[in-house]
Design a protein around this nucleic acid. Structure first.
Lengths: 131, 131
DNA sequence: TCAATAATAAAAATCATTACTATTATTGTA
DNA sequence: TACAATAATAGTAATGATTTTTATTATTGA
């Protein structure tokens, strides 16, 4: 049975106002302003909990720590291989991919994640300046 | 300047004959049969190196350790949320997504990765048997 | 054959995340 | 409101994957 906690509410609210896919540690730092005694374990536990209920999405992109996103609408991400910056891709995702996949796979498909990788505009600019 | 190493060749060959997306530790165990003194650090370094040259692909799916795949053709993966099994999706990927994305994004896009998640046929069966 | 240097083994260090435990907060009920 | 049950917490220790360090070994071009 799930019980209310002010820490969890605070974490959720912070994430809903974030649009830069913070890591657990970033969330921890932010929540600490309001709840100086919150522990990192509490942050991790609640982020996992919120992800398991589908209220937020956990993004594992292979670049260090996992990121979290309160925007659960289907959308693509882009990961810069230079600066590690993760951002939303400004494009509509291809629709119906899960449904299509169900025609080819016997298991239960609950969703998918797509992320692009490459070099972000900022790092591209720096690269050109050096050359 | 890149120098030949028998360990790297062995790692690459093992991966080319694997089709189950082994972790670094699994590769380590396998290579140790031939090279009992190889160190895990060497395995990690060479896997990273091979991934950076594009000879293999590193798959970070958020379930424990990273996996490695010598099949670099574009294809989707499926991760079971029960047993953690990672497998290839038996379907052709949507073509031209990178090109499409380039129309919407200012940076350099070098590729993308898509993985589906849900429950694999085996775990689905176990679930039904219990109920 | 030799010098330069990339790659290695082995071990220690780091980083993200999870587990543990005693205490505190929440909740349904009397 | 008071109380008992128990979920959640803080603080800390432990874990697991990966990276770094360093002295030694292997590869390579001259």
């Amino acid at each position: 049975m799930l019980k209310y906690s002010r820490q969890r509410e605070s974490i959720k609210e912070f994430l809903m106002n974030s649009h830069d896919h913070p890591t657990a540690d970033t969330v921890y730092s932010a929540i600490r302003i309001q709840y100086p005694n919150i522990s990192l374990g509490t942050v991790y536990r609640n982020l996992s909990l919120l992800a398991s209920t589908g209220e937020i999405t956990k993004i594992t992109c292979g670049d260090g720590a996992d990121r979290f996103d309160a925007d659960t609408h289907p959308h693509y991400h882009f990961l810069c291989d230079r600066c590690g910056h993760l951002e939303d891709m400004p494009m509509d995702p291809i629709g119906g991919l899960d449904e299509l996949a169900k025609n080819f796979y016997q298991g239960r498909i609950s969703g998918h994640q797509t992320f692009f990788y490459g070099t972000c505009p900022g790092c591209l600019k720096k690269e050109k300046e050096k050359a």
